[in-house]
Amino acid sequence: MPKEARAKPGASPPSSASAFSGRHLLGLQELPAEEIRLLLEQARRYAPLSTQNRTKHPVLKGRLVVTMFVESSTRTKNSFNLAARRLSADTMDFAAGSSSLSKGETLIDTAKTIEAMGIEILVVRHPASGAPDMLARHVKAAVVNAGDGSHEHPTQGLLDIYTILEEKKRIEGLRVGIVGDILHSRVARSNIWGLLKLGAEVWVCGPATLIPEPLRDLGVKISHDFDALLPNLDVVNMLRIQLERIKGPPMFPSIREYARLFGLNAARMRRAKKDLLVMHPGPLNRGVEITPDVADGERSVILDQVANGLAVRMAVLHRAAGLAPFAEGGAE
């Protein structure tokens, strides 16, 4: 079965997979591989509809999706809102800055207050790792993690995997490198869990101060030599350095040295495989982890990732609404 899914990524999963295991999406760590495949397939079915504005799918009509972003974000929030609207859901933004959170109310009280207004799906971004887990314990709504601290960013992980699948038609056996500030990256964690479950060989690369050694226990391979690693990779996912999460002394000497050691540029690209897939979850720091020519180059799928994010988030909202996989058809 997995072999068939590999050969034909668009093929329908077996009929036995008739239900999702739950509604919350807190991380990819707790999702079984089969559930990840179901979500990817659900996303594939929504893809034709995801980036065109004329038709809406009625599947979430009459349902209220609230986005509660307690940490600034543009692309993820817009992507969730648009995905919800394309499924005909009502959406409401809960802006943290203007809310009672800034008046000393606890996160749980705030979420319960919003919930009392009848929401079914709460999309949460929060600077504290585990905040969505805490909310899921205290509210009845389905909680979708839109990025929590340095923990997980499951929809980003899913859309990255979706993008790889679109381009490479498989995940198993691929050698995927994630380069940069792994220590603080929720994108890295979600990618690692998802990719490992689907059978990829996962490498992380960056300064030793930003790579947690216990990753080895998960089966992740660690390199601090980007030049040696790059020629072996099928996919490279370049991450931003999260300076805002670094407290205390800087964890590497300078941006210049970082860019020399770990930046993706044209010279390095010449030694990469011809079909290397270049990814970046954004926002980009051009000239630091990636040079503009590479970011905008022919092997970059950075904008495809953004587009695929819509389809993936539609699939995640579909699941969060408690619908069966592929319920009420796809876009066809």
Partner: peptide, 11 residues
Amino acid sequence: EGRVSMELGLE
């Protein structure tokens, strides 16, 4: 600090 903190994204 260890495997669990790494997985949870907690310092």
